[in-house]
Protein backbone atom coordinates (compact mmCIF):
# COMPACT_ATOMS: atom_id res chain seq x y z
CA UNK A 1 0.00 0.00 0.00
CA UNK A 2 1.92 3.00 -1.22
CA UNK A 3 0.30 6.42 -1.19
CA UNK A 4 1.93 6.92 -4.59
CA UNK A 5 -0.25 4.21 -6.06
CA UNK A 6 0.29 3.66 -9.75
CA UNK A 7 2.10 6.87 -10.55
CA UNK A 8 5.30 6.50 -12.54
CA UNK A 9 7.50 9.62 -12.32
CA UNK A 10 8.55 11.17 -15.61
CA UNK A 11 8.89 14.40 -17.55
CA UNK A 12 7.14 13.60 -20.84
CA UNK A 13 4.56 15.97 -22.37
CA UNK A 14 1.86 13.67 -20.98
CA UNK A 15 3.30 13.97 -17.48
CA UNK A 16 3.44 17.74 -17.79
CA UNK A 17 -0.06 18.17 -19.23
CA UNK A 18 -2.54 19.50 -16.65
CA UNK A 19 -4.52 16.77 -14.91
CA UNK A 20 -7.88 18.38 -15.69
CA UNK A 21 -7.16 18.49 -19.41
CA UNK A 22 -5.97 14.89 -19.44
CA UNK A 23 -9.10 13.83 -17.61
CA UNK A 24 -11.36 15.66 -20.08
CA UNK A 25 -9.51 13.97 -22.96
CA UNK A 26 -10.03 10.62 -21.26
CA UNK A 27 -13.77 11.23 -20.99
CA UNK A 28 -13.99 12.19 -24.67
CA UNK A 29 -12.09 9.05 -25.60
CA UNK A 30 -14.33 6.86 -23.46
CA UNK A 31 -17.46 8.37 -25.04
CA UNK A 32 -16.03 7.80 -28.52
CA UNK A 33 -15.16 4.22 -27.71
CA UNK A 34 -18.73 3.51 -26.64
CA UNK A 35 -20.25 5.31 -29.64
CA UNK A 36 -18.08 3.69 -32.32
CA UNK A 37 -18.99 0.32 -33.76
CA UNK A 38 -16.39 -0.06 -36.46
CA UNK A 39 -13.49 -2.40 -35.59
CA UNK A 40 -11.19 -0.35 -37.81
CA UNK A 41 -11.84 2.88 -35.92
CA UNK A 42 -11.62 1.15 -32.56
CA UNK A 43 -8.39 -0.50 -33.64
CA UNK A 44 -7.02 2.90 -34.62
CA UNK A 45 -7.86 4.28 -31.18
CA UNK A 46 -6.11 1.32 -29.54
CA UNK A 47 -3.05 1.98 -31.66
CA UNK A 48 -3.11 5.67 -30.72
CA UNK A 49 -3.24 4.77 -27.02
CA UNK A 50 -0.30 2.40 -27.43
CA UNK A 51 1.58 5.21 -29.16
CA UNK A 52 0.75 7.49 -26.20
CA UNK A 53 2.42 4.96 -23.87
CA UNK A 54 5.53 5.43 -26.01
CA UNK A 55 5.28 9.22 -25.87
CA UNK A 56 4.94 9.05 -22.07
CA UNK A 57 8.01 6.76 -21.96
CA UNK A 58 6.28 4.42 -19.55
CA UNK A 59 8.89 1.86 -18.43
CA UNK A 60 8.57 -1.49 -20.21
CA UNK A 61 7.99 -3.24 -16.89
CA UNK A 62 4.83 -1.18 -16.31
CA UNK A 63 3.71 -1.62 -19.92
CA UNK A 64 4.11 -5.37 -19.53
CA UNK A 65 2.05 -5.30 -16.34
CA UNK A 66 -0.79 -3.39 -17.98
CA UNK A 67 -0.59 -5.57 -21.11
CA UNK A 68 -0.71 -8.75 -19.09
CA UNK A 69 -3.80 -7.79 -17.09
CA UNK A 70 -5.52 -6.46 -20.23
CA UNK A 71 -4.68 -9.62 -22.19
CA UNK A 72 -6.22 -11.85 -19.53
CA UNK A 73 -9.36 -9.73 -19.41
CA UNK A 74 -9.60 -9.41 -23.20
CA UNK A 75 -9.24 -13.16 -23.68
CA UNK A 76 -11.97 -13.81 -21.12
CA UNK A 77 -14.28 -11.23 -22.67
CA UNK A 78 -13.59 -12.45 -26.21
CA UNK A 79 -14.38 -16.10 -25.50
CA UNK A 80 -17.57 -15.19 -23.67
CA UNK A 81 -18.79 -12.76 -26.33
CA UNK A 82 -17.88 -15.11 -29.15
CA UNK A 83 -20.04 -17.76 -27.57
CA UNK A 84 -22.91 -15.33 -26.90
CA UNK A 85 -22.77 -12.90 -29.82
CA UNK A 86 -20.38 -14.16 -32.48
CA UNK A 87 -16.85 -13.30 -33.45
CA UNK A 88 -17.46 -9.90 -35.05
CA UNK A 89 -19.20 -8.40 -32.04
CA UNK A 90 -16.68 -10.07 -29.72
CA UNK A 91 -13.85 -8.23 -31.48
CA UNK A 92 -15.66 -4.88 -31.09
CA UNK A 93 -16.23 -5.43 -27.37
CA UNK A 94 -12.61 -6.47 -26.84
CA UNK A 95 -11.27 -3.41 -28.64
CA UNK A 96 -13.52 -1.21 -26.50
CA UNK A 97 -12.21 -2.83 -23.33
CA UNK A 98 -8.58 -2.49 -24.39
CA UNK A 99 -8.89 1.12 -25.57
CA UNK A 100 -10.82 2.37 -22.53
CA UNK A 101 -8.75 0.53 -19.91
CA UNK A 102 -5.37 1.23 -21.49
CA UNK A 103 -6.18 4.95 -21.73
CA UNK A 104 -7.50 5.10 -18.18
CA UNK A 105 -4.40 3.32 -16.87
CA UNK A 106 -2.18 5.72 -18.80
CA UNK A 107 -3.89 8.63 -17.06
CA UNK A 108 -3.23 7.08 -13.66
CA UNK A 109 0.38 6.21 -14.52
CA UNK A 110 1.25 9.73 -15.70
CA UNK A 111 -0.64 11.82 -13.14
CA UNK A 112 0.42 12.36 -9.54
CA UNK A 113 -2.38 11.91 -6.99
CA UNK A 114 -1.65 15.39 -5.59
CA UNK A 115 -2.28 16.86 -9.04
CA UNK A 116 -5.51 14.91 -9.42
CA UNK A 117 -6.61 16.19 -6.02
CA UNK A 118 -5.80 19.79 -7.00
CA UNK A 119 -7.63 19.36 -10.32
CA UNK A 120 -10.69 17.90 -8.61
CA UNK A 121 -10.62 20.69 -6.03
CA UNK A 122 -10.51 23.23 -8.85
CA UNK A 123 -13.21 21.46 -10.86
CA UNK A 124 -15.57 21.26 -7.91
CA UNK A 125 -14.99 24.83 -6.74
CA UNK A 126 -18.24 26.08 -8.35
CA UNK A 127 -20.13 23.61 -6.12
CA UNK A 128 -18.93 25.51 -3.07
CA UNK A 129 -22.19 27.46 -2.90
CA UNK A 130 -24.07 24.16 -2.52
CA UNK A 131 -22.10 23.26 0.60
CA UNK A 132 -19.55 21.04 -1.13
CA UNK A 133 -16.09 21.49 0.40
CA UNK A 134 -13.59 20.63 -2.33
CA UNK A 135 -10.69 21.68 -0.10
CA UNK A 136 -11.47 18.67 2.08
CA UNK A 137 -10.59 16.11 -0.59
CA UNK A 138 -6.90 16.14 0.30
CA UNK A 139 -7.87 15.67 3.92
CA UNK A 140 -10.10 12.70 3.05
CA UNK A 141 -7.28 11.11 1.03
CA UNK A 142 -4.94 11.38 4.02
CA UNK A 143 -7.48 10.17 6.55
CA UNK A 144 -8.42 7.16 4.43
CA UNK A 145 -4.83 6.13 3.69
CA UNK A 146 -4.02 6.34 7.39
CA UNK A 147 -7.12 4.29 8.22
CA UNK A 148 -6.13 1.64 5.67
CA UNK A 149 -2.72 1.35 7.37
CA UNK A 150 -4.30 1.14 10.84
CA UNK A 151 -6.91 -1.43 9.78
CA UNK A 152 -4.30 -3.53 7.96
CA UNK A 153 -2.41 -3.84 11.24
CA UNK A 154 -5.64 -4.76 13.02
CA UNK A 155 -6.54 -7.32 10.34
CA UNK A 156 -3.12 -8.95 10.70
CA UNK A 157 -3.54 -9.19 14.48
CA UNK A 158 -7.04 -10.62 14.20
CA UNK A 159 -5.86 -13.20 11.71
CA UNK A 160 -3.04 -14.24 14.06
CA UNK A 161 -5.54 -14.61 16.89
CA UNK A 162 -7.91 -16.69 14.75
CA UNK A 163 -5.01 -18.91 13.71
CA UNK A 164 -3.95 -19.36 17.32
CA UNK A 165 -7.41 -20.69 18.04
CA UNK A 166 -7.27 -22.95 14.99
CA UNK A 167 -10.18 -21.10 13.44
CA UNK A 168 -8.49 -19.60 10.38
CA UNK A 169 -11.00 -21.23 8.05
CA UNK A 170 -14.08 -19.73 9.60
CA UNK A 171 -15.28 -16.54 7.97
CA UNK A 172 -16.91 -15.23 11.14
CA UNK A 173 -13.85 -15.96 13.30
CA UNK A 174 -11.94 -13.44 11.21
CA UNK A 175 -14.54 -10.97 10.05
CA UNK A 176 -16.50 -10.43 13.28
CA UNK A 177 -13.59 -9.49 15.54
CA UNK A 178 -12.11 -7.50 12.68
CA UNK A 179 -15.34 -5.53 12.32
CA UNK A 180 -15.73 -5.02 16.05
CA UNK A 181 -12.22 -3.60 16.25
CA UNK A 182 -12.86 -1.56 13.09
CA UNK A 183 -15.84 0.08 14.74
CA UNK A 184 -13.87 0.72 17.92
CA UNK A 185 -11.15 2.29 15.82
CA UNK A 186 -13.78 4.49 14.15
CA UNK A 187 -15.09 5.62 17.55
CA UNK A 188 -11.60 6.44 18.81
CA UNK A 189 -10.74 8.25 15.59
CA UNK A 190 -13.96 10.22 15.85
CA UNK A 191 -13.00 11.36 19.35
CA UNK A 192 -9.47 12.18 18.26
CA UNK A 193 -10.73 14.25 15.31
CA UNK A 194 -13.23 16.05 17.53
CA UNK A 195 -10.51 16.80 20.09
CA UNK A 196 -8.40 18.25 17.29
CA UNK A 197 -11.15 20.64 16.29
CA UNK A 198 -12.64 18.72 13.37
CA UNK A 199 -16.29 19.63 13.00
CA UNK A 200 -15.84 22.90 14.87
CA UNK A 201 -16.22 24.72 11.55
Amino acid sequence: MTPGGWYEPGSSPLHRAPAGGKFAALLVLAAAVFALRSPAWLGAICAAVVLAYGVARVPLRRCAGVARSLAVLAAFVFVLQWWLLGAGQALVVCLRVVAALAAANLFTITTRIDDVVSAVEGGLAPLRRFGVRPDRIGLLVGLTLRAVAALSAIAAEVREAARARGAQRSVTAFAVPFLVRTLRHADELGEALAARGEGDG
Partner: peptide, 20 residues
Protein backbone atom coordinates in the same frame (compact mmCIF):
# COMPACT_ATOMS: atom_id res chain seq x y z
CA UNK B 1 -21.58 10.92 20.48
CA UNK B 2 -23.22 13.86 18.76
CA UNK B 3 -20.02 15.19 17.25
CA UNK B 4 -19.88 15.47 13.46
CA UNK B 5 -16.33 14.17 13.66
CA UNK B 6 -17.75 10.78 14.69
CA UNK B 7 -19.72 10.65 11.43
CA UNK B 8 -16.66 11.55 9.40
CA UNK B 9 -14.60 8.92 11.22
CA UNK B 10 -17.09 6.12 10.59
CA UNK B 11 -17.33 6.98 6.90
CA UNK B 12 -13.57 7.12 6.46
CA UNK B 13 -12.87 4.00 8.51
CA UNK B 14 -15.50 1.97 6.67
CA UNK B 15 -14.13 3.03 3.29
CA UNK B 16 -10.78 1.79 4.57
CA UNK B 17 -12.43 -1.39 5.86
CA UNK B 18 -13.73 -2.23 2.39
CA UNK B 19 -10.28 -1.51 0.96
CA UNK B 20 -8.61 -3.79 3.50
Amino acid sequence: NPLPAADLARTVVFAAFIAV
